[in-house]
Design a protein around this nucleic acid. Structure first.
Lengths: 235, 235
DNA sequence: CATGGCCTGTCAACGCGATGTCAATTCGGA
DNA sequence: TCCGAATTGACATCGCGTTGACAGGCCATG
């Protein structure tokens, strides 16, 4: 899940740019930055970051122009526009298309991070493996509906908490692989948070209760003694 | 992916129209386009596309007029309204004329594509449209009458305020999906308004009192802790 | 094959952030 | 201006995530 998350910040106002970079770095993004449109566009095209935070009012080349150029280059980067509500707002209404989201200045770092996370979730969102037409993933006797945050077992539906869902998605991504607890922690929880490895066991326990036919004798979520866990979809 | 998916884009603003067409073509839609209401209506009637993206503010013939004419012609096309005004009135009005969904400008291409996909899924699933013949929607024990702004529970009728109605409609359009508060805010309230996320809770509270048999133990409007809410129609 | 030590399963309890709830205030349309 | 709706804030409550304790289980060693 934690693929290289590289962000390019294109913002001329120094204070704001630094604040953004700081916040992003502490969220463990790789951060690139540029102070004007031209430099930003060059960096974007050269590096192809996963996400671009784009101010609209920029020296040398305004944000609209940058966005258009980026899209013409078929760059797959996500773009979140940072716009002031003032003058350009009307133009935003007409021009902002091709961006994935927009945040109106002044905004709180918290709000921005929430939107970035939402974007990531939508991106990783679907599911790794084969999902059926309704967007669900089958695991043995049950189906997981990631969009709905729940597992479906016949007629019965059980909710999944966010951690449970993220953990399950992680296992799905690494199907058949024995994964040690430390890696699970850093990949699913992130390096900022540092719970005990016991926490994982508890979550595995809860997942087993929800996806295993017989939680006491797990088929899909197996223990690899001295290492961690291994996940399988087939029965 | 599926059968002939033909889309007609009716939008006067050139940049936006081009952006839309590009995005749709790269999603492998057959795309038709028109720059004003009259041309759009002609194309719609002549070609009967599966989906129409309809701007409201158009030269020669506004979007409402086009929509009305399309429906009078018993055209089966789905219609998604692109509303620049962001006024609730527009949205409600649009639904009364038989639009299937609306997107408020400025919107992200991603969001639009998600809506289109949702529409396709609803369509393919053989799921009936949102409203039945009488224009009402059944939710468990109650019925919602959108035209009359009220819910009917047996003999009892309770009024719905505009926001309540908007929110409820949004949930219906995204049935079975866990939606985070931020998305609800931008989608239902629009980007120009920015109330607290707490506001949503209050409205959910009021909706629950009106549609749930036991508001303290909600069946249809469930909370997904740490995420947002999930709506279901069935009991 | 038996034993000890480490690893995991399981559960109950706690803390904190998220949500439910309502009253007070602001907003917006006749 | 007036009235109802929308929004906000305060406070109560709830649920998840986390932890620690204990009971087993697994493996390595002898």
């Amino acid at each position: 899940m934690t693929s290289p998350r590289r962000v390019l910040v294109i913002e001329d106002e120094k204070m704001l740019r630094m604040a953004l970079v700081d916040a992003l770095v502490s969220e463990e993004f790789d951060v690139l930055q540029a102070a004007d449109g031209e430099g930003g566009l060059e960096l974007a095209l050269a590096e192809g970051p996963d996400l671009i935070l784009l101010d609209l009012m920029l020296p040398k080349r305004d944000g609209f122009s940058v966005l258009r150029a980026i899209r013409q280059d078929r760059l797959a980067s996500h773009v979140i526009i940072l716009s002031a509500r003032g003058e350009e707002w009307d133009r935003v209404q007409g021009f902002e298309y091709g961006a994935d989201d927009y945040v109106v200045k002044p905004f709180s770092m918290r709000e921005l991070l929430l939107r970035i996370r939402a974007l990531e979730r939508r991106d990783a969102g679907g599911a790794p493996g084969i999902e059926d037409a309704s967007g669900r993933v089958r695991i043995g006797q049950v189906e997981v509906d990631f969009a709905a945050y729940c597992v479906v077992r016949g007629e019965e539906r059980m909710g999944l908490s966010r951690r449970e869902l993220e953990l399950l998605r992680y296992f799905l991504l690494h199907e058949g692989e024995a994964i040690d607890r430390l890696r699970i922690l850093t990949d699913v929880w992130g390096a900022n948070e540092a719970p005990t490895t016991r926490t994982i066991d508890t979550h595995v326990l809860k997942l087993r209760k929800k996806i295993e036919a017989n939680p006491a004798d797990p088929v899909h979520l197996q223990t690899v003694h001295g290492v961690g866990y291994r996940f399988t979809r087939r029965d």
